[in-house]
């Protein structure tokens, strides 16, 4: 793998010799990935379909374990702590996730959706504290002014873009260290997409963001660091600007110039 960056000091996340296969006989979906992720920055993972980018992202909060046959080797460290040794439940409170399609809980109100992490986990907090968390989370996703009068309506009445921002609010209500986003704007229209992008740029001062994206322009617009994956290999990892202007690997160049993908 080619690196065009200096060593990142005190990284939030460190991925060490990570291999993932969907079952024992399959070939690796993710091969020998070694990466450190910078704190309070946006790191984008790019690559053509099936290159293993979502698998890698899901491994970071162990959502890939929902496939029971999955095989993982190597380690992932969150603030130097091996996540494979943490309880997945504890881990997922520290590493939040937002999915491709907005998935607010249909039976819950907007308010309850934001506070869902506390509610579903049975964490009891005072009403005033809940109100504060909800308002703060909704403000930081710029949704507060739009929904403050309908907090107790169902979240599914919102538009797609609003729903996605609600899902981001749900993820940050727990104050995680890292937010993982799996193509968060691929189901949204351009206006909603740009709102979410602005929001992510704003959020990076408090959170470390890792996002998978299909959209090269998006990676160029908002990320500081980029990974390019191809057929399970991490081909290139480095500063986004460098990668887009002067890719080290031929495959990266071909992908970025639209020769395949």
């Amino acid at each position: 793998m080619n690196k065009n960056i200096d060593i990142i000091d005190s990284p939030v996340l460190k991925i060490d010799k990570l291999h993932i296969a969907y079952n024992k006989t399959d070939k690796y979906a993710v091969k020998d990935v070694n990466v450190t992720v910078k704190k309070n920055a946006i790191t984008a993972i790019m690559g053509p379909s099936g290159c293993g980018k979502s698998t890698l992202l899901r491994a970071i909060n162990r959502m890939h374990e929902l496939y029971p046959a999955i095989q993982t080797e190597g380690g992932i460290y969150l603030n130097e702590e091996n996540i494979m040794k943490m309880s997945p439940i504890h881990l997922r409170r520290k590493i939040g996730m937002v999915f491709q399609r907005p998935n607010p809980f249909p039976t819950m109100s907007i308010y309850d959706n934001v506070i869902a992490g506390y509610k579903l986990n049975g964490i009891r907090i005072k009403k005033s504290e809940k109100d504060k968390i909800v308002e703060e989370a909704l403000r930081s996703v710029a949704l507060w002014d739009e929904v403050k009068d309908s907090l107790h309506k169902k979240g599914t009445f919102l538009s797609g873009g609003q729903q996605q921002r609600l899902c981001i609010a749900r993820a940050i209500a727990f104050k995680p260290d890292v937010i993982l986003l799996d193509e968060p704007t691929s189901a949204l229209d351009p206006i909603a997409t740009s709102k979410v992008e602005d929001l992510l740029v704003k959020l990076k001062k408090d959170y470390t963001i890792v996002m998978v994206t299909h959209n090269m322009a998006q990676a160029a617009r908002i990320s500081e660091y980029s990974m390019f994956m191809y057929l399970g290999d991490l081909v290139e990892y480095g500063k986004t600007k460098m990668m887009f202007t002067n890719p080290r690997d031929k495959r990266t160049e071909e992908y970025l110039t639209g020769k395949f993908g």
Partner: peptide
């Protein structure tokens, strides 16, 4: 029930039995 709801619950660090009881069953009530 879309699998994304199960994922949403799991991603919040909710134990699986609680995802069933408090997300899946209410959604499929």
């Amino acid at each position: 029930i879309p699998g994304s709801l199960k994922e949403a619950g799991m991603a919040l660090g909710v134990p699986y039995y609680k995802v069933i009881l408090r997300v899946l069953i209410p959604s499929g009530f």
